[in-house]
């Protein structure tokens, strides 16, 4: 079932540190999974909206991380999100069957968010993947715009512009004029 967590940003920021290189590769991988699996999985879920596809993407992301660890390359949260995001984009390109728009009322009945929050989340789910990813990475995952720019391979200024436009579109989507 849905579990609402209010302090998502704090939890994501908590799991930023790079795995200790003194640990074995398996231990580093286990630590990576423990620290990032939830944020990564929910990020993928927000993008692809299909639990199975999100699970596959998360698995591939951690396997890529494992290969990187074996090659003594650093693995951190931005790298994981970047790989996960690219993997999700691959799924979009393949035209995978994604679950239809998630119905936020499922969560409403359990957690009873305010009407405003419900409207925002409904509008969020109707945005384009590009807008969703930048809004999610900034507001939910807690990354800075420069970090998101590094993930997506663009400048931070470009991300700031995208973020501003995404907010405008989100506001339009839930019925408020920009």
């Amino acid at each position: 079932m849905w579990q609402v967590r209010e302090g998502v940003i704090a939890s994501v920021l908590q799991v930023r540190p790079v795995p200790d290189a003194a640990l074995s590769i398996d231990e580093q991988l286990n630590r990576l999974i423990s620290d990032h699996e939830r944020a990564l999985y929910n990020f993928l879920l927000a993008l692809v909206r299909d639990p199975e596809v999100a699970l596959d993407c998360a698995q591939d992301t951690f396997l890529r991380a494992y290969e990187n660890l074996r090659k003594n390359r650093p693995v951190n949260a931005p790298w994981l999100f970047k790989v996960a995001r690219n993997r999700a984009m691959d799924e979009f390109r393949r035209g995978s069957k994604f679950r239809p728009e998630s119905d936020p009322t499922d969560a409403v009945q359990v957690h009873e968010p305010t009407d405003r929050n419900l409207a925002v989340r409904q509008a969020f789910s109707e945005l384009s993947p590009s807008d969703r990813e930048v809004l999610y990475l900034f507001d939910v995952a807690g990354f800075k715009t420069d970090e998101i720019g590094q993930m997506l391979g663009v400048r931070g200024s470009a991300i700031r512009q995208r973020l501003s436009r995404a907010r405008v579109r989100l506001r339009q989507a839930y019925g408020v004029e920009p």
Binding site: E6, A107, R116, A119, Y136
Partner: peptide, 12 residues
Amino acid sequence: AQSAALRTIPQE
């Protein structure tokens, strides 16, 4: 309000 609402996105 957007940011606050998005932070309530359920974390499965």
